[in-house]
Simulated scan of single mutants.
Amino acid sequence: MKGYWAVILIMIVIQISFFWAGVKPACALADSRDCGRLYLLSNGAVAAAIGSAELWLRVRSRYHKQVVTGCGFVLSCLLYFIVEPFADGAQMAWIVPIVVPLVYFDRRLLLITGGMTSVSYAGVYLLLERPVFDKPLLEFLLVEAMIALFIFIANGVIIRAYEASMELEQLTKSEQSLLVERAISDRLLKIDALTELYNHKTFHEYLDSLLEQCEKNGLKLQLGLLDIDNFKQINDTYGHWIGDIVLKEVAARLRETIGLNDFAARYGGEEFAVIFTDKTLEESREMVEKLREAVERMEHPYAGDKPITVSIGLCEYERGDAKEMLFRKTDDALYEAKRTGKNKVVLCTGAYASLSSK
């Protein structure tokens, strides 16, 4: 709508310039004192049409395209009658309503508006241009051809824009599919398929990054190694598929127990690894003890309802220790838990005192 206001403002400026320069209208009514009033009325009608359309767009939420196009059609008619008495080529004003559907990329609106424009100009020629201005038939045909050509070009632009939009949509969908496939691929590379915990490789990558933070920024970190007690006996007695079920259930309890900033992985076979961050050693000990108790309380009707337990070794990283030293201490604590009766949590402090046992 701002474009319409700009057009009417320009036309008013041009008319005032013509009057100041003494340019007389070529119309038969040019000598009439009512000529000025006629143009004032025409400009007022244009302003009223634009104002009405502006009001509709602000108040109503429907038919915006139709209102803007209709306003353009009325504007083109009135501009034609304003310009025609002063200069040739006023027929170009009939192009205005055809431009609006092109802005909206609406083919149906373009064809309807184009047809109305062509018919309206034919009526103007037969009722005004031919009898009053004595315009030749060839000029009428040229203007109609120009309108038809503009409609044809605008229609081609809309079709091409639609095709480009479809191509862009297909490209976007393809890119989204690639992103999804890449995300799935990354997940498959990082996640253990059976337990849905992180795998051995991802665990070490994450641990290396955290150990750097420990050395640089003093991040607190504890490593826990968890091993299912007598797992080989479970496999030999009930079969490997029962063993897989046990692994899944222990992994589920592990996910439920750890915090958002912690990291759990299937380290290999029946062994799991957990990295605790931003916690004290006592807080981490309480979490692994909670995990041990949760596993012990699980029921296993598929395994003769015999209890399944875990042994856990827990160690806090100390600055200066390499990753290998951290694993060695934690593995020693796990071995101590296994050696001293299983189903317990052992810290790698001093003589590996058991903090919890059944």
Rank of each mutant, 00 (worst) to 15 (best):
M298L: 13
N230K: 11
L189A: 14
L221W: 06
A265E: 02
G115T: 14
K65I: 11
L247I: 14
V83G: 03
A193Y: 08
D236P: 10
V74H: 07
D332G: 10
V74E: 00
F73A: 15
V124W: 07
I158M: 03
W94G: 03
L326Y: 07
L207N: 01
V180R: 01
W20D: 05
L281Y: 11
D305Y: 07
G341K: 07
T280K: 04
L291E: 12
L137R: 08
E215M: 04
P301R: 15
D229Q: 02
V310N: 08
N230W: 08
I50G: 01
W56E: 14
L55C: 04
M1P: 06
V68M: 06
I98G: 00
W241S: 15
Q176C: 02
D331M: 06
A294F: 05
E249A: 14
G224N: 01
F19Y: 13
A264T: 02
E289D: 10
V99S: 02
R266I: 14
Y39L: 04
N343Y: 02
V46Y: 06
D186R: 11
R108S: 11
I308Y: 03
R58C: 07
V100K: 05
A148H: 01
F327I: 15
Y238T: 02
G156L: 11
T117Y: 04
K279H: 13
